[in-house]
Write a protein that binds this DNA or RNA. Structure first.
Lengths: 153, 153
DNA sequence: GTCTGCATTGGCAGATTATCCCAATCCTTC
DNA sequence: GAAGGATTGGGATAATCTGCCAATGCAGAC
């Protein structure tokens, strides 16, 4: 796997800032002409450095007013238990992020919902129905101070 | 502010899944012709429902191997203190997410770094140098089980 | 049931952009 | 200094965007 040079990093930074810049603009920014710039972008895509392109949607504008962080502890932590939990989580659209954690909690989830009633429904009908969960602890976010997609390159 | 109808929601779902679908593909998916579909997308952009477009980059591919969640408590929670903290956080690229929380912790941050040394440098040179912080507690993520940008529409 | 007015749609055409080929250039290695 | 490989830049074609305009659908009034 070849390393990323300075131009590649500029390309990544620009595309993270605006995933729809034209090749001409992008080429100008990174100091190349269109052709090699285009080829580098395609290469970054095929190498999996750029995984995909997406539109960011305003959470409040579509009525999702509740953000919750959930700490979860499993009864057992064997690989099979972890995989079963991961598979279940992956199916649910309300779960935006899930991390396997060090320390005394196994998982940390970020979940969004329209309101508290919808969140309660998620807990009752989905999360608490999973087998093998020892404890669930919800922390509510009052506001989103920062939300960035752009990794520092 | 007009409500989002079923077609708008389909458009949002499609653009979240692929921010670079062509208008033709998008129009086919939502059951419109290109013109009205294009107009709806522009409207969603100007109304701020679609905030921007971005390329998603693989964290490991660019050498960011450490993900940390940091719980922070401030000495005081007056609005001015909160604002000062928010401004500082916003400048740092390592901080991808920051939430003002309920309960006994004021803030929850998600931070990425190349390795533990880089994370230590972030703590020493940036975070701990802020005034007004009462406590900092780091929890490390062993793996990212799920990471989604797509809000359920 | 029919008419009117409004909002939305679909088709079309010019302008913009992506994409690929090929020759020229640069850099490394011998 | 020469040879080889990788990368670049320009240009041509195909694909796509984007705005205009007439046509369509729909709701309310009579």
């Amino acid at each position: 796997m070849p390393e990323l040079d300075a131009i590649d990093r500029k390309i990544l930074a620009s595309l993270q800032a605006d995933g729809r810049t034209t090749m001409q603009e992008l080429a100008d920014k990174v100091g190349l002409s269109v052709s090699p710039c285009h080829r580098r972008v395609k290469l970054l895509e095929s190498r999996g450095v750029i995984t995909r392109y997406t539109a960011l949607v305003d959470q409040k504008a579509i009525g999702l007013h509740v953000s919750v962080f959930i700490s979860i502890k499993l009864v057992r932590q064997k690989e099979e238990d972890l995989n079963r939990f991961a598979r279940a989580i992956s199916k649910w659209d309300e779960v935006l992020e899930c991390y396997l954690m060090t320390g005394n909690r196994d998982y940390l989830l970020r979940v969004v919902a329209a309101d508290l009633a919808a969140y309660e429904a998620f807990l009752k009908n989905k999360l608490t129905r999973l087998d093998g969960i020892a404890s669930i602890e919800s922390s509510f976010a009052l506001s989103q101070v920062k939300y960035s997609i752009a990794l520092p390159v």
